[in-house]
Design a protein around this nucleic acid. Structure first.
Length: 595
DNA sequence: GGCGTCACG
DNA sequence: ACGTACGTGACGCCG
């Protein structure tokens, strides 16, 4: 492999690569950006490597801490990077897109992202790093980044010859992986899913991350002080009830207090001892005052440490906003995940949950709009199972849980009590999770015999669902994988296991994945469609969060009406099922109001 | 770094 | 007899 620095290694002055020369006959090129760190909002570009031919890769230093930089090199490359006719190959291109956005360079063109390709080929795999994928498909062992960095604090301090070796290797590796992985993508019938959904989604996710969300730091700080006082008083009360001081956050120490000192009845066990989780403590709170106080303490402490005290520190200095990372290659089902910080698990339940949502606000002159799919997974179940009862209920717009209750308990729809509805709702959830008598019995605190009877009663009225489950399992056993409506695949390797625990777990995955995964497919389609339409109409509205079945937008006042209609329409028409997709949409000055 | 716990869909 | 509801990420504890 020949590795050169396009400008740094050779004599820069003699390197008058004209734009015409770069762009002519160039169908695709692999790129890899080196940076001062992994945060594409805060960190900056150090250099970029390029490869357009196996065996030849170039490294362009941009901001190394020595004098061989070509600050204008990016401008020379801009035409290539922004050419829609030149496809871009890379491993985790969302990162490169975001880094270049900082330089006001906007990548265009087909994206061959080898990380996303690896994920589609095996969504169960934990690690789709270039290191791992390189080893798996090319048996190519990369030099670890840590070794390149050595004693240096950041890549911009790495001497050029070492930087060239490392960076150019990455670009070439991605280039070579592209051939292999995208042949497989085609062979596996994943090309439509990749090119129609995952590939355009990369751009959408990059824009969402770049947009970020505004939070009310002052309000969070005020909440924090309020909680300090409450936690202090809870702490004293807990020590008093326990008869001594201890670390309330240690479940081990708490377990000793509850089950040894106070002699309360033990319940569920964990690997390391007796459980002190919320179910156990709720049960214990009937016989002693302490468990209830612990529960209050835990809730407040959790929300304070995870959200209230953390978020103000994460507000980006440049943008004044909170930026998450949307991960496209993490979940086994096709969902996105969010991290650093996770903005897909912002509290909503309880008074304090609402207060936290109130701290997510719109920019001055804008509002937040939240749009969420109503019962999307049950609608998908209705579609996939062709179950007459389910389809009929959704076509007629009936409250699905009440309808299920009426069926299972054989009462008239008007006579469904809230309690019966709650049970039916749990069963409906259970179906989607790959129901089992044990699981349902735990969720409803009934015996598994009773749970089994409820399940039987459900299937008596929903033959379509029963047949869907049976045929899905049959397919899974035959293929060792299951698929979503848009042909996403998940391998279910233990589906034929002789270990019954593993096999049953695999069976639940086999049922749940097509449903959860199809929901993920549909909202991804909607996101792409909405993003396109916002661009086409030159609207300023920004999509800022996705929470599995919900999209959150920041919308300038004057666009409110137009955008509300646009979003609802695009989400509801993302894909035509045999039942309607329904979207609830709301607006407000903060996320609590818009929900 | 594994574990328990708990925030969300 | 065993042990599981599906999918995530982050926190603090503990070794």
């Amino acid at each position: 492999m020949r590795q050169e620095s396009l400008f740094g290694h050779q004599d820069a002055k003699n390197n008058d690569l004209g734009k015409a020369k770069i762009t002519s006959n160039l169908d695709y090129i692999s790129i890899d950006i080196e940076s001062t760190g992994r945060d594409p909002i805060s960190d900056s570009i150090v250099g970029i490597s390029l490869c357009k031919e196996k065996g030849i890769a170039y490294y362009v230093p941009i901001r190394h801490l020595y004098n061989q930089n070509i600050p204008d090199a990016l401008i020379v490359l801009q035409d290539v990077l922004e050419s829609p006719a030149i496809a871009k190959i890379g491993h985790n291109l969302k990162f490169d897109i975001l880094m270049l956005m900082q330089e006001d360079i906007h990548i265009q063109g087909i994206l061959y992202d080898t990380m996303v390709a690896s994920y589609l080929l095996n969504p169960n795999m934990q690690n789709h790093s270039l290191e791992e994928v390189g080893i798996k498909y090319l048996n190519h062992k990369k030099k670890p980044f840590k070794d390149v960095l050595g004693k240096h604090k950041s890549f911009d301090e790495v001497p050029l010859d070492e930087a060239v070796q490392y960076a150019a290797e990455d670009a070439e590796l991605a280039f070579e992986l592209k051939e292999i992985l995208f042949d497989k993508i085609k062979d596996e019938g994943l090309d439509k899913l990749y090119f129609n959904i995952e590939m355009p989604l990369i751009y959408v996710l990059a824009e969402m991350q770049q947009a970020g969300i505004k939070i009310d730091t002052k309000l969070l700080q005020a909440l924090s002080k309020e909680l300090d006082r409450e936690l202090d008083s809870l702490e004293s009360r807990i020590y008093f009830l326990a008869g001594k001081k201890f670390n309330i956050n240690s479940s081990q120490q708490l377990s000793k207090i509850l089950f040894e000192d106070l002699g309360l009845k033990t319940g569920k066990k964990t690997k390391t001892g007796y459980s002190t989780n919320v179910e156990v403590l709720e049960q214990l709170s009937l016989s002693h005052e302490l468990p209830g106080e612990i529960l209050s303490y835990r809730t407040l402490y959790k929300l304070k440490t995870t959200y209230i005290d953390t978020f103000p520190n994460l507000v980006n200095k440049k943008t004044g906003r909170l930026h998450t990372s949307f991960n496209q290659t993490v979940t086994a089902t096709g969902r996105l995940s969010s991290s650093d910080p996770n903005l897909q698990n912002i509290p909503i339940r309880g008074e304090l949950g609402l207060k936290i949502r109130q701290t997510f606000i719109a920019e001055k002159g804008s509002i937040l709009i939240s749009a969420d799919y109503s019962q999307i997974e049950l609608r998908i179940l209705a579609h996939m199972s062709k179950d007459k009862g389910l389809i009929d209920a959704f076509l007629r717009g009936i409250d699905i849980h009440s309808r299920t209750a009426a069926e299972i308990f054989n009462v008239s729809p008007d006579n469904v009590s809230p309690e019966l509805r709650r049970i039916a709702k749990t069963i409906n959830f259970g179906i989607i999770y790959g129901i089992s008598p044990f699981g349902l019995s735990e969720a409803l605190s009934i015996t598994s015999k009773e749970a089994g009877e409820l399940i039987e009663s459900y299937f008596r009225r929903h033959h379509g669902v029963k047949e869907f489950i049976d045929s899905t399992l049959k397919e899974a056993r035959k293929n060792n994988y299951v698929t979503t409506l848009l042909n996403r695949k998940r391998q279910i390797s233990e589906i034929n296991s002789t270990n019954s625990n593993l096999r049953q777990q695999a069976e639940r995955m086999a049922i749940n994945t097509p449903i959860q995964g199809t929901a993920a497919d549909l909202i991804k389609i909607a996101m792409i469609a909405i993003s396109r339409e916002l661009k086409n109409r030159r609207l300023k509205t920004k999509m800022i969060l996705q929470i599995h079945d919900e999209l959150l937008f920041e919308v300038p006042y004057e666009e409110t009406d137009e955008v509300m209609e646009l979003i609802k329409h695009k989400m509801e028409s993302a894909f035509e099922l045999s039942v309607p997709l329904e979207v609830d949409i709301k607006k407000g000055k903060n996320w609590a109001e818009a929900k």
